[in-house]
């Protein structure tokens, strides 16, 4: 197990946001956290790399307790791609090189430059590498964020809604790149998603959150109309297309 979360709870001030969340993630797996808005998906991600400090619970990464590690040690284990990234007059290359920060002691090494170059190739950003990040599109910026997390060389990637505000092509690109990386490298990924069908297509496991706790978890077999009605309050049918389930929402009253 690369990641195991047990009994995780978190309160925003005195309002409970998460309670008794437990799950585990194996090597080379992509896990999607799903559920309606405000259910605590992003909170859960931020608890895993302790941007938010959980009220109680254990988070083990490769058997080590994350809460006992310092920030830099966590950054070497866990790469985080936030929902939104600020821009500035920083070049794409430098913005990605930033991902090496947890590994840099005094100055960047040749190895750092090579890793960044490999990430730029992988995400097809070669043509943009010396452009400023405030001059590139939202999709390109998201790729820069993902590349930054890649060069961190973490064992776990956390992606907070990596496809929000992207067009169809970029959504597919990002998820394909993440899945390829997870297949080829010693890394696993946890991502929060809104789009059920994209999640179904690119993930190995699913967690559905309802009212701050896990309602359903497992492989694609847990995605049933009854479960989705409970979680989202929407009537759907689930068809299979080439073995992958496809969720089709029904109009109000027509189910």
């Amino acid at each position: 197990m690369i990641l195991s979360v047990d009994g995780l709870a978190f309160d925003y001030r005195s309002t409970p946001a998460l309670s008794d969340v437990r799950f585990a993630l194996g090597r080379n797996e992509v896990l999607s956290i799903l559920g309606p808005n405000g259910v605590g998906k992003t909170t859960l991600l931020k608890c895993i790399n302790t941007i938010l400090t959980p009220k109680n619970g254990a988070i083990l990464i490769d058997g080590r307790e994350v809460l006992a590690l310092n920030r830099v040690e966590i950054a070497r284990e866990i790469g985080y791609v936030p929902q939104r990234c600020e821009t500035g007059r920083l070049t794409v290359f430098d913005a990605i090189l930033l991902g090496r920060r947890p590994h840099i002691r005094w100055n960047i090494s040749e190895n750092d430059l090579k890793v960044v170059d490999a990430a730029i190739r992988r995400l097809n950003l070669e043509a943009l590498s010396l452009r400023y990040i405030d001059e590139i599109s939202g999709g390109e910026l998201q790729k820069v964020s993902v590349a930054r997390a890649f060069v961190q060389e973490p064992r776990l990637l956390l992606l907070d809604e990596p496809t929000s505000s992207l067009d169809l092509k970029n959504q597919l690109d990002i998820l394909r790149i993440v899945r390829e990386a997870v297949r080829e490298q010693p890394v696993s990924a946890v991502m929060t998603m809104h789009d059920l069908n994209l999640a179904l297509r690119y993930s190995d496991g699913f967690i559905f959150l309802k009212e701050g706790t896990i309602f359903a978890a497992g492989g694609s077999e847990v995605v049933t109309p009854a479960m989705l009605r409970e979680v989202y309050g929407v009537h759907v049918i689930v068809e299979r297309h080439k073995g992958i389930p496809v969720v089709i929402p029904l109009e109000e009253g027509s189910g």
Partner: peptide, 10 residues
């Protein structure tokens, strides 16, 4: 590049 990204970078 943002507070959260910075925290994620340690």
């Amino acid at each position: 590049v943002g507070d959260e990204a910075a925290k994620g970078l340690g």
